[in-house]
Design a protein around this nucleic acid. Structure first.
Lengths: 236, 236
DNA sequence: TTTGATGCTTGATAATTATCAAGGATAAAA
DNA sequence: TTTTATCCTTGATAATTATCAAGCATCAAA
């Protein structure tokens, strides 16, 4: 349904970092061509290989980026508000390299890719914001690559738990934000081995009850996990 | 030695995609602050964690990007002429996430990062080129991630050989561009297992003699490797 | 309450990958 | 030529991870 963006959404979107510094005229022209939609959980939004017709922006909820090959598939990232996804494909007018689906009920803004490219060419504030977003996405991928190539699966899980604890506010107890099968896929392991990995982390002060995690010995877990800002710090 | 860039290098550098569209005044100001240096093989250029003082551009030779954690290390990418490396760190004024060293004798141009950021802000042609470079680098990383998470080590080697064959012109025989220990690290395996993987690929028509590879049964290897443009095609 | 259905866990086993130790091959240096 | 060093390979073994099959828990529908 191409209805255009309701004006009531303008302020929310305007406050996103990627739109904050751009010219008002350009902003409004982007908004006129775009729209916001709410999707139920577990809905496919895009499929890898498709042409990149829209820039997607997650306003609420969360999105799973994943990829498939030869019958296997793997989760590559979670996108949380407020962030774009598949920006590089949009900018290059190239096919998506990843598929995307909602993990939960999610509100997503869609802006036609050709409009994004057109405004990019004439609005240096927007161009600057896109470079910020792209360079951050690139560095996140480098970190994910280091995590995957330099650590064992147990170390990846330990560091994931520390990052997630931090994201949830730092308390000893917190909930996993999605199912363990997907967590296993994100971490590059099977669900069976994730179960066993959780059991192995008990020795370092981790208790699991359903999706509830308690870090009972912070020091011990951190000693084992040995987190590094050059892999685990999202702000750098 | 900060001697400034010799004018004889200007045309070479000006023809690089990243500098091609920018204003001549801005180009010359970048060149005045930069310089070109030739390094012998196996020289460390930058270390992860260091502040990003210079944008690096490989003019000739080749560069190994790698990372370390807890005493382990892993090669993450090879940079070949003509390309920048560590552009994202330069743009964000953030520490390098990877270390870099020469694989062979290499000529590298160095441009002070602060100059790059300053010109980026005022030259839209340059900003456009930087976005091109960044988005391409990002998509390359996504592909590398899919390669690593979706394929077994034998499949990664098979696809690597097909890509390398293509890069070398497509003939049945070609030479590996660096030692097998580094290839193993790039592919996320040990040198011992790389040896065994080469032996296993004999069954699919691959012959190895030192660093000389011959693909004797192209069809058979491609059937096994099942290359995908969304992972293996560098042009997309 | 029973009945599925789903998601997670467990155990047994197989496959893959890593590690350790030793042995070639090659090429440059003595 | 011998020596030395480097790089690669091989075999034996250990560790890790995946697969398969079964079982348990939770929850919602019947």
């Amino acid at each position: 349904m191409r209805l255009g963006m309701p004006e009531s959404d303008f302020p929310d979107i305007r406050s996103l970092e990627i739109f904050a510094e751009m010219d008002q005229v350009h902003f409004e022209s982007l908004m006129r061509g775009g729209y916001v939609q709410t999707f139920p959980p577990h809905v496919d939004l895009i499929a890898e290989g498709d042409p990149s017709d829209f820039l997607h922006i997650v306003m609420s909820g969360s999105i799973d980026l994943f990829a498939s090959w030869n019958g296997r598939d793997s989760s590559l990232a979670t996108v949380r508000p407020i962030a774009t996804f598949i920006l590089a494909a949009t900018i290059r007018d190239a096919p998506y390299l990843m598929s995307a689906r909602t993990l939960e009920k999610s509100r997503v803004a869609l802006i036609p890719s050709q409009d994004v490219r057109a405004v990019f060419d004439v609005d240096s504030g927007f161009a600057r914001a896109i470079v910020n977003e792209l360079s951050q996405a690139y560095r996140r991928k480098i970190k994910a690559m280091k995590d995957l190539k330099l650590r064992t699966s147990l170390e990846r899980l330990a560091n994931y738990l520390l990052r997630e604890q931090d994201r949830c506010g730092g308390a000893a107890g917190f909930d996993l934000p999605f199912g363990k099968a997907r967590l296993a896929s994100l971490l590059g392991m099977t669900p069976e081995n994730l179960s066993r990995a959780f059991r192995n982390l008990q020795a370092y002060g981790v208790t699991v009850n359903g999706s509830r995690i308690s870090i009972t010995d912070q020091r011990d877990l951190e000693t084992f996990a040995a987190p590094s800002p050059l892999i685990d710090d999202d702000r750098i």
